[in-house]
Computed example of a mutant assay.
Amino acid sequence: MRTYRYKVQTSSYGLFLGITAEAIQLNAPPTSRNQVSDRVWLDTGRVHHAYSGRKLALNGQEVTWLHLGLREYTESIELGAPGSYVLIIIHALEVVDADYAEAALAPALAKWTEAEFGLAPRSGRINRDSTTGELTFSWDERPQ
C-alpha cells in the first residue's frame, strides 16, 4: 500500500489530493468491481477520508476521473502481471475541501500507478479554462 500526494499551485488556483491505494494480483477476475481493461480492475467501495476516517461514497464522475488516470497504464500493468488480473483498491483520499476538485483524481492515480508499478513517468496535466473555471486532464503524446 502506498500514498501519493498530488499538488498544483498556480497564480489562479491550487489543487491538493492524497490517494492511498494498493494493487493485488488475482487468478480470476473480480466479480463486483469496476473493470478498466481486460485484466485491470478498480475497487472504490472501501474509500475513507484519510483525515476524519469517515467512509467516502465516490460519485460516478469521480470514478470516471480515476479511470482516466489509470487507463493510460493498463497495458504496462498487464505486461508486468502476465496471466493475472490486477485489482487496484483505493483505500483513502486526503481531501482538503478548499483545494479539492474531482479532476485531480486522474493525475493523482496516474502518479500513484507510476510509483507502484515502477513505470516510466508520463506527462499529464490539469488545464483550467480561465473563463469557466472548468478543469480538464490531458496526456501529452506518448514517446515513440
Rank of each mutant, 00 (worst) to 15 (best):
I90C: 13
A92I: 04
V96G: 05
D97I: 07
K55T: 15
E62S: 11
A57P: 01
A57S: 14
L105E: 07
H91P: 02
G60T: 09
A104Y: 04
I77M: 03
V63Y: 12
E75H: 05
L109Y: 06
E72M: 05
D97G: 02
G69F: 09
L70A: 04
G80I: 04
A98H: 13
A92K: 08
A92H: 07
R71S: 11
G60S: 13
A103Y: 06
A57D: 15
E72Y: 10
L109G: 07
E62R: 12
L70W: 03
A108C: 14
H67D: 06
L68F: 10
A57Y: 06
K111A: 13
P82E: 04
E72D: 06
V95A: 01
L68T: 14
W112L: 04
H67A: 00
S76L: 13
A81M: 04
W65C: 05
K55R: 15
I89L: 05
E94Q: 10
D97P: 02
L87Y: 12
I90K: 00
I90N: 10
N59C: 09
E72L: 03
E78Y: 03
A81L: 03
L93N: 09
L79Y: 11
L70I: 02
Y100N: 05
A108L: 12
E75R: 11
A108D: 08
S84I: 00
E78Q: 06
L66M: 12
T64M: 09
L70E: 03
V63G: 11
A108T: 10
E94W: 03
W112T: 07
Y85K: 02
A104D: 05
A101S: 12
V86K: 11
G69Y: 08
A106T: 07
G69C: 09
G80F: 00
E78N: 00
G69N: 02
I90F: 00
A104F: 08
I88F: 05
E102H: 07
L70T: 03
E75Q: 05
Y100I: 06
V63I: 15
G80P: 02
G80M: 11
L70H: 01
T74N: 06
T64F: 00
I77H: 00
P107K: 04
L87C: 06
P107G: 06
A81K: 01
A81T: 14
L105M: 15
S84W: 03
Y100R: 08
A57C: 01
A103P: 06
Y100Q: 15
L87V: 02
G83F: 04
L66A: 09
W112A: 10
V96C: 01
P107V: 08
G69T: 09
D99G: 00
P82F: 05
I90Y: 02
T64P: 00
P82W: 11
E102T: 15
A110P: 07
L93D: 13
E94L: 07
E72C: 02
S84Y: 11
A104G: 08
L109K: 03
